[in-house]
């Protein structure tokens, strides 16, 4: 039976570490909520209570609509694609084929690189004229595309960067899950005459469900959290076509110095994140469990 925690020990073991955590997680979240009801202070007048004025601005913000559409498209595009690729990569690496270590190295390498380095690498890859992408197009006699400079392609180009960076990490989690799939289940299915495709969809894939929940929630958080490539590659442009929500928060707060509106957007982001994670967990968890 566990002992009661004495007061002095509690101060050292729990209170100090948790205070640090609360000060930079819960406090700022609540603080953002409070600040979203106040306007910005200037040198002449202190900030004053404005009620829901910031939220009215938020509802009428045309740029925000664009940013939300971008973010939705970005998440819906990158998360399933990265998960699908990760499962494919894990199957390849797990199959003990010749050249496995080369495959693993290549798939996992982008994960080790900082997003900022990935952004530089892809900036060069996409560069008009000089980049490999436009050279490949040139070889096939296709007209050059200004990947990052046109409103139609900038967001999709950013999505490729994100998938390239993330898929390798997710592959590792699937690799771990694949190695935990019991051999005898597959043997039994094989005896019953099931082919490899059937075995994958009826045995392996259902057993991967907990991993998929874990990966999907992580991918969602990352889709919100990681905007380094937007800052380096396009600055949200052209014409906001590649701006994501956190990038917009960054720009509003630290370029336009509008901290009140930044706080309002932070509240929006935290709420969204909570709701989405809950929905995702519920949807993926609702289906039957096999384990």
């Amino acid at each position: 039976m566990n002992k009661r925690l004495p007061f002095g020990l509690a101060m050292i073991m729990l209170v100090i570490p948790c205070l640090l955590l609360v000060a930079f997680t819960h406090y700022p979240a609540l603080r953002a909520l409070l600040n979203s009801f106040w306007n910005n202070a200037s040198s002449r007048r202190p900030s004053k209570f404005v009620g829901v004025e910031n939220y009215q601005t938020l509802l009428e913000d045309d740029r925000l609509v664009q940013v939300m559409l971008n973010s939705t498209f970005y998440a819906l595009g990158t998360i399933p694609l990265a998960i699908g690729l990760a499962i494919g990569m894990a199957l390849l690496v797990n199959a003990k084929l010749p050249g496995t270590s080369l495959m693993r190295l290549s798939f996992f390498m982008p994960t080790m690189l900082p997003m900022i380095a990935v952004a530089n690498i892809w900036l060069f890859f996409y560069a008009p004229g000089i980049g490999l992408a436009s050279q490949i197009l040139g070889v096939f006699g296709l007209p050059p595309i200004n990947f990052l400079g046109s409103t139609e392609t900038s967001l999709i180009s950013m999505m490729f960067v994100a998938v390239w960076k993330e898929a390798g990490l997710f592959m590792i989690f699937y690799l771990a899950a694949l190695q935990a799939v019991p051999e005898n289940l597959k043997d039994a299915a094989r005896l019953e005459g099931a082919g490899p495709v059937r075995i994958f969809f009826n045995i392996v894939l259902p057993l991967l469900r907990p991993t998929t929940i874990f990966v999907a929630v992580n991918a969602l958080i990352n889709a919100f959290r990681l905007v380094d490539h937007v800052i380096v590659m396009t600055r949200g442009g052209p014409n906001n076509s590649s701006a994501l929500l956190l990038y917009y928060v960054y720009e509003v707060t630290f370029s336009q110095r509008d901290f009140a509106y930044g706080a309002t957007l932070t509240v929006l982001m935290v709420c969204l994140l909570g709701v989405l994670a809950a929905v995702q967990y519920w949807v993926l968890n609702r289906k039957a469990h096999y384990q």
Binding site: R225, G262, T266
Partner: peptide, 24 residues
């Protein structure tokens, strides 16, 4: 309760809260 409170940080990571953390 305290454990649940700590786990909130897994979802709401410090990057999301740059505005207020900068002010702090």
């Amino acid at each position: 309760f305290l454990f649940a409170l700590i786990m909130v940080q897994l979802l709401v990571s410090p990057e999301i809260l740059i505005v207020e953390n900068y002010l702090t």
